[in-house]
Nucleic acid binder design. Structure first.
Lengths: 139, 139
DNA sequence: CTCTTTGCAAAAGTTTTGCACGCTC
DNA sequence: GAGCGTGCAAAACTTTTGCAAAGAG
């Protein structure tokens, strides 16, 4: 995963600096959604000189080229997960923050059409997330 | 709408103070989702003595008894809309912030069952929002 | 008259910005 | 070497908290 990310970053004209690489590394070794501060804490163990600001700036870049995605939950919207890239939807564990992707566009497509007709809206985007308990947290 | 809100607020032990009533009034006269500061600005025109803090505290109460709901969009998650109460989903205009509710649980229920089987997650909640252009903004 | 709620001010948190230096390409 | 990206410090916001005073029930 890291290699692909590094490639995409350079393709987009970004320099592979130590802080950026550390943030990528943190994402590729985590199974949970991570907030900027959590990323910062994890990054510091790999690179003690890193600053919080660089985490924010790295996230900005990664988000812009769709390598990460912000996660919205009832408890807050600061956390990020790697982007699946396949227009999939998120399933999140409310207990530990673990995430997983699933597809469901066939269903949504139909729904969007119906709602567009009913409301007169021109529907351009949709957003579906499921919440629950991951197998680990059910134990 | 206001009357029902006032009733539910007193039923829940809250006092009908001037600031609280003003915030309710703002919601019942708006068709857009509103952020705390937008609510504050609108409230000041009706009650110049109101403080921003009271807006936050009113929202807390209104959210707790499910009269309003926080709206999540790619652009931010500070805005609120009146809660439909019928477990419906939101359709939002990306341009002007107008909102509308729709139902679609039959479809989602099916999807949730499938995903639960596939992933081993115990799915407890779902979250669906559509984005688009309202009829007004298409003109 | 009691006790919740208010408005103010200040604190706490998070995110952004300015700037000189360092490191990537 | 040129110029993007860094770390630090400070600023800008948003949201929360402490407290005396006001006002709802």
């Amino acid at each position: 995963m890291e290699t692909i990310w590094f490639k995409k970053l350079t393709e987009n004209g970004y320099r592979l600096t130590h802080p950026l690489k550390t943030v990528v590394e943190v994402f590729s070794t985590s199974k949970k959604s991570l907030s900027p501060i959590e990323i910062f804490e994890l990054a510091k163990t790999k690179n003690p000189r890193i600053g919080l600001v660089s985490v924010y700036r790295s996230l900005e870049k990664l988000e812009e080229i769709h390598l990460v995605q912000r996660v919205h939950t009832p408890l807050g919207c600061q956390s990020f997960v790697p982007y699946s890239g396949k227009h999939e939807h998120l399933l999140l564990c409310s207990t530990c923050g673990a995430y997983q992707y699933f597809t469901g566009d066939e269903l949504i497509g139909e729904l969007m059409k119906t709602i567009a007709e009913k409301t007169g809206y021109e529907i351009t985007d949709h957003w579906l997330q499921l919440f629950g308990k991951c197998p680990e947290c059910q134990k």
